[in-house]
Write a protein that binds this DNA or RNA. Structure first.
Lengths: 340, 340
DNA sequence: TTAGGTTGGGAAAAGCTTTTCTCATCTGCA
DNA sequence: TGCAGATGAGAAAAGCTTTTCCCAACCTAA
């Protein structure tokens, strides 16, 4: 048995026109609220269009208008941790404008990237948003000389482009200032590999707030590293920290676990703040982690609105736009609720 | 300054034809390897097309061929845990065929779902794949009377449709049999809410393998539940289990943590198996979890190939196709490597 | 030399919609 | 009655590609 929902004769505007007893031009104008005709004719055409289930063919429409109401989202973030919220924001912003999104995961493969870009261009996308998993890396594909607008979100762009990124320094400041406000004075910073731009930004902001060098431990983006770093700190003779600002939630979780294993209470003895606000990690840690949220959905929303503006020919100032982070307070720092 | 990459005159096949000194029909035939003409003409047209950077307009092509080389992926899995691997599989299967994928996240909102479906239909998608986060729930949108083929992947479909799902019973069997092979005899099962079909399937398979009622504890899909369940078991006077089969990786992780806190060694004293093989959880647990992988990427691949077949009018047998799971061995059960 | 086949290539239609003209009819007014 | 302007609606082109004829020139064989 065949399951194909047989596309037996799609209904076109010709069918509507015939059923309404008018010409196709009149039908078109009736449905698009353009042209001149009697109210009755317009209503009748619209009613009949609804009855026969007419759906305008976006291909034909796009061919003429040179707008496909389609954009492409290019990403190399296979795991989707960053891409998914960005995608959600884009989609939310554009669905009202009738724009659909092609999602293209290109790993780190330039050839695959080119294939996807070519496919998108053939399909006449109105624009392309590039996103990734790292602020300081470009996607492995050249988007600089396309004849459609390109916007970069959470990935390194070209100099003359529009780029959206999180304000990591501000986010880190938020975290450290919060710890200070909770009365903590000896704050350590356990974070990821130093060659990440975000890591340097966050560490820089951390040093600025605490006013001095502080304790910065660079490592890997892994729970094991958080665990290990705490072990290192507590094996030394120095005075122990009363707070730890972690470079991401996974490190924070490892740190919290290591502290608990040592009988050190979180948040009573040591406060911990994470970064990313990755629900699955921050929410499941015991106690749940206070963490910095990069507002990736909002970032996606703005990227979506920007690509729309460019597609419609509205001018947009190029440059890098830093979006503020937000501190999400859970229980790993103590009970006080955040100042509003 | 304006950043729009000004779409000043796209190059059409007319330009190629003019540049090559042939008619557009000849140009078209040259590029598509159809029609009759001298080898030199064909080569010249192709060379010139390459030189001027000609890219056929998929809209015009689709208008004629009634194939848009575009499909829609509808999902209500906001978090992307299941959707992302499925999407990766679909994309991998279809990119070679020039098919691009619209990703539409519809939450659980019927209105939003309808908007996305309408948008996809207007854009003349060749088919729709519906996917979700639960095998036993339908998406909140009616896809039964569309004039394009629909395939369901990891979500409940309509009776006459093609549906792909994981074989949860087989996966659970794999896990429990593995524990038995490791010499375990007192195997408990800590799992999610009983109203999930997968939960009942897995619990059923568990009971079948151990031959009896066993210890099945239904609860929530959360680390806290795994933790709590272990606390319950170990607070009782009964003989303690020497293995735990968990309903998902989060529960398993909670269980492992709870065991460690009691000084019970994993895997020496108790073996633990998870389900889902969610790298971020299974890989970061100490010790890393042996877990059942549902092969969602393969599931996506098959769904993609199926929708392609249907779009091309090839007949496909309707019904539910169960895809086998795979056991991924890490360290939470002991050292033996899996039989191949 | 002529009939028939081959070769290389072009004209035109189709696919669906929107938009710009054009046209016929009607209304109101002088 | 005659005319200007408004009104309602249709014809046709454009947008880009593919495909189906069609045609002219050339070749071959009787």
């Amino acid at each position: 048995m065949n399951v194909a929902g047989g596309k037996r004769g799609r209904i076109t505007i010709h069918d509507v026109a015939a059923a309404a007893g008018v010409s196709i031009s009149t039908a078109s104008k009736a449905l698009n609220e353009t042209g001149r005709m009697s109210v009755e004719t317009r209503e009748r055409v619209k009613r009949i269009a609804g009855e026969v289930g007419f759906r305008p063919n976006a291909l034909a429409r796009g061919l003429l208008s040179k707008r496909s109401f389609t954009i492409g989202l290019l990403t190399n973030d296979t795991y989707g941790r960053f891409t998914l919220p960005v995608m959600a924001g884009i989609s939310e912003a554009l669905v009202d404008h009738g724009v659909s999104v092609f999602l293209c995961a290109i790993e780190d493969d330039p050839a695959l990237g080119q294939i996807h870009v070519d496919a998108m261009l053939e399909k006449q996308v109105d624009g392309i948003i590039a996103t990734g998993k790292r602020l300081d890396r470009q996607l492995p594909v050249d988007l600089s000389n396309l004849h459609v607008p390109v916007v970069y979100a959470f990935t390194e762009g070209t100099p003359a482009s529009v780029t959206f990124r999180s304000d990591d320094a501000q986010g880190a400041r938020l975290a450290v200032e919060w710890l200070v406000k909770m009365g903590r004075r000896r704050i350590a910073h356990i974070t990821g590999p130093e060659d990440f731009f975000s890591v340097r930004e966050r560490a820089g902001a951390y040093r600025n707030v605490i006013g001095g060098e502080g304790v910065v431990m660079f490592g890997r983006w892994a729970e094991a590293w958080g665990h290990e770093a705490v072990a290192q700190i507590w094996s030394r003779q120095d005075e122990k920290p009363d707070a730890i600002f972690c470079g991401n939630d996974q490190i924070a979780r490892g740190a919290v676990d290591a502290l608990r294993e040592r009988g050190i209470r979180v948040p009573e003895d040591v406060s911990v703040v994470g970064f990313d606000n990755w629900e699955i990690v921050a929410g499941q840690t015991r106690p749940p982690l206070t963490s910095v949220d990069m507002e990736l959905k909002e970032l996606g929303r703005q990227a979506g609105l920007t690509i729309l503006a460019l597609a419609e020919g509205r001018p947009v100032e190029p440059g890098v736009r830093k979006l503020p982070c937000r501190l999400v307070v859970r229980q790993s720092c103590g009970a006080q609720s955040p100042r509003r």
